[in-house]
Design a protein around this nucleic acid. Structure first.
Lengths: 223, 223
DNA sequence: TCACTAATGTACGAACCAGTACGTTAGCTA
DNA sequence: TAGCTAACGTACTGGTTCGTACATTAGTGA
């Protein structure tokens, strides 16, 4: 047996000093802590205490609290982008493809509540950390490319009546998925309904798909 | 002339000590400050400095930072409820009524970004302050009652094909309106598009209405 | 007009918290 | 194996921040 807490690749002995591991461990804990308490609510001392290293290392590797939060955001957004890159709807017709994309987005939001919280927190800070990050500026969105291709095919085949912009459709899908997770608590407290109740999951997932398809295939009544 | 900064009802002389005015002034400033910086980011000293009174009064009237934030939320939610009570769509047919309701919701979110921020902040804190407030627990939602009545009429007249729950439709409308304002900054930074750009306002407003109507009037293709 | 209380102001303290000065050691390389 | 440096730990500080003890006064009712 090589180690209890580290799975580690075989042949790679557990070292006392491991920059990559220490850095990753700090990021893991910092992600939880920032997501839990917000930027100002998070405590650098608390983050350090929950790692196997000390506060000194946070400043050694990241420079400060601000940069740590930026690094947390970079990694979180990177994970989303990687997941989006694995979306494959090429074999589906436009209607099925859009529904599938909506479902993947729905699932992803549900499975990453910490990410949702981080994004909410970053919006309170008016995206200053994203602005400060070079990495995040040129990250792009694979999901948007997928939407663009599906919409083009849908318009060509005449299945979609609406001449919809890809970014707008992304807003439509994301807003529903995001709100359900981000506003779970106030909504639950005020309306007595848990939007993330597992028993309601399939219902809301289908509702999202129905909504998007209805919008894309509806006859537009010109005002 | 009675006073420069207080419009005041005639005959009511400007007093040096005015509990109601002091309380209201603290709430005004606190609302701005909490919305700007979040709960933990807001500073009691800063709030006090921006009023005509002192920090002592915040503790005198509200008890502490937590209770001040709760009072801010209570007033903000109260304003929304009052606005919702003024919604009048009784004279419209169900389709027009739902679109009108969506537009009112859309306008209200756009006009109250501070409220959106406060709700986002309260969600980061898992609605603990709402839970601590008796007032907010029994506030209700006039908008929800309006939706209920419209849906019932729509189903009766056969205009709406979908058997939709009122709360669910409220989620659908709110999520779009909320996201557009709450995620304005991260969305803008990542996609280079300002969702609250005045030039796009009519476009998104119509898009929301189209979406909701399409959903309510679409033929459901059973899976 | 006199006393009483609600309303207000000042000054301060104790805890907290981001960040750092300084010292130490594991592990690699020549 | 000697020496070098990246990686790490300890202990501290200076400023901040919520909250309060204590003193004071405006307005009101008897």
């Amino acid at each position: 047996m090589t180690s209890v807490e580290e799975p580690a690749r075989p042949g790679e002995r557990e070292r006392i000093r491991d920059a990559a591991r220490t850095r990753a461990e700090i990021l893991d804990v910092a992600t939880q802590e920032f997501a839990r308490a917000g930027y100002d609510g998070a405590r650098v001392d608390d983050i350090a205490a929950r790692t196997r290293t000390t506060k000194r290392m946070i400043y050694y590797y990241f420079g400060g609290k601000e940069q740590l939060f930026t690094a947390v955001l970079e990694r979180a957004y990177g994970a989303i982008r990687d997941a989006e890159q694995r979306i494959d709807v090429e074999h589906l017709d436009p209607v099925a493809a859009i529904r599938r994309l909506a479902e993947v987005t729905f699932d992803h939001h549900e499975q990453h509540p910490d990410f949702i919280r981080l994004v909410s927190i970053e919006n309170i800070h008016e995206a200053h950390h994203i602005a400060a990050s070079e990495k995040l500026g040129r990250m792009g969105s694979p999901a948007l490319d997928v939407i663009r291709r599906i919409l083009e095919e849908g318009r060509r085949s005449g299945l979609f009546t609406a001449d919809v912009d890809a970014v707008d459709l992304h807003v439509m899908i994301s807003s529903f998925c995001f709100f359900r997770v981000s506003n779970r608590y106030t909504f639950g407290a005020l309306f007595g309904r848990d939007l993330v109740d597992p028993a309601q999951r399939a219902h809301y997932r289908a509702m999202l798909g129905d909504m998007v398809i209805a919008y894309l295939t509806a006859e537009r009544t010109a005002g």
